[in-house]
């Protein structure tokens, strides 16, 4: 099996020093155990490629370009030439330039499926792979997907292998200047706004202390998962409406415009 791991520059959550995002280090571990894998990084700095070698990859490609342009073009071009079975990536950004959107953009441009939040991947023969996907509350879903595909790695995947200086020294980094034709400005242009806490939905107070705690932590809504297998669009819409009424987004049926009540 041939794999490519997408690498980015995150930040250490405490020190703010550049660091390979943890989920990417976990992706490296998964990839290295599955077969021939290379790391791929687009950006001005070779640091993630070097870190990836230390965490267990034998080979990494650094597509050098100035910071600023959209990295998706060079990434997709290189992935197309490598033709891997699986492209692995982290699940979300870790404070650096990375946004966590790259795997989705890459999958869309390549026209391949994306499976988010994987904790394990196994070859399932005949161009198929079995992916264990992490769901909330520790649940796992096993998917069998046809390759090629993009997979993002969940923090519950096996812990990353430690960085080994000697491995980083032994591995090879291929440095190529990203083709100017592949580089385009990020569109739509990103906009920076100060962080604003999302307002919490008010719920009717009352009930026991445990109920109030559930209301605050959102436990009450997450508890009643209901799975419909191949529902008709009408049934599905009814369920969604019923759910929205239950959590108070929509008024209860027949209650008019008086708003949610307990």
């Amino acid at each position: 099996m041939k794999l490519v791991v997408l690498l980015s520059v995150g930040r250490h959550p405490v020190s703010g020093k550049p660091a390979l995002p943890r989920t990417e280090a976990q992706a490296i571990r998964i990839a290295a155990e599955l077969g021939a894998s290379i790391g791929l990084h687009v950006g001005p700095d070779a640091f993630p490629a070097e870190a990836a070698l230390g965490h267990g990859l034998d080979r990494a490609v650094h597509l050098a370009c100035a910071g600023g342009p959209d990295p998706i073009g060079p990434l997709v071009a290189r992935i197309a030439t490598e033709a891997p079975d699986v492209v692995l990536a982290g699940r979300r950004g870790q404070g650096g330039e990375e946004t966590g959107l790259a795997p989705y953009a890459v999958a869309a441009r390549l026209g391949v499926p994306i499976v988010p939040d994987a904790v394990a991947i196994r070859p399932a023969g005949d161009g198929l792979v079995e992916v264990d996907q992490a769901l909330p509350k520790g649940a796992l879903r096993r998917l069998v997907v046809r390759t090629p595909l993009v997979v993002t790695v969940h923090p519950n995947a096996p812990a990353p292998l430690p960085y080994a200086f000697g491995k980083a020294r032994r591995g090879s980094i291929e440095r190529v200047d990203a083709a100017a034709a592949d580089l385009a400005a990020v569109a739509p242009a990103p906009e920076e706004r100060p962080y604003r806490k999302r307002p919490k939905m008010m719920r009717a107070a009352g009930g026991s202390a445990a109920d109030r705690l559930k209301a605050v932590t959102g436990e009450a809504t997450a508890g009643g998962a209901k799975i419909l297998d191949g529902p008709t669009p009408e049934d599905a819409a009814k369920e969604v409406l019923a759910f929205l009424r239950r959590v108070g987004v929509l008024a209860p049926a027949g209650a008019g415009a008086t708003g949610p009540t307990a």
């Binding site: 250490h12 405490v14 020190s15 020093k17 660091a19 230390g54 965490h55 267990g56 812990a159 990353p160 292998l161 430690p162 960085y163 080994a164 200086f165 000697g166 491995k167």
Partner: peptide
């Protein structure tokens, strides 16, 4: 540790903190 990347399992995080946060506990 350097060549095989095989320090004791429980030291992985400590060593990562020392490398990335200059401090074994990952504290500011």
């Amino acid at each position: 540790t350097l060549e095989l990347g095989a320090p004791p399992q429980k030291s992985f995080e400590t060593l990562a903190n020392l490398r990335e946060a200059d401090e074994p506990g990952g504290r500011p």
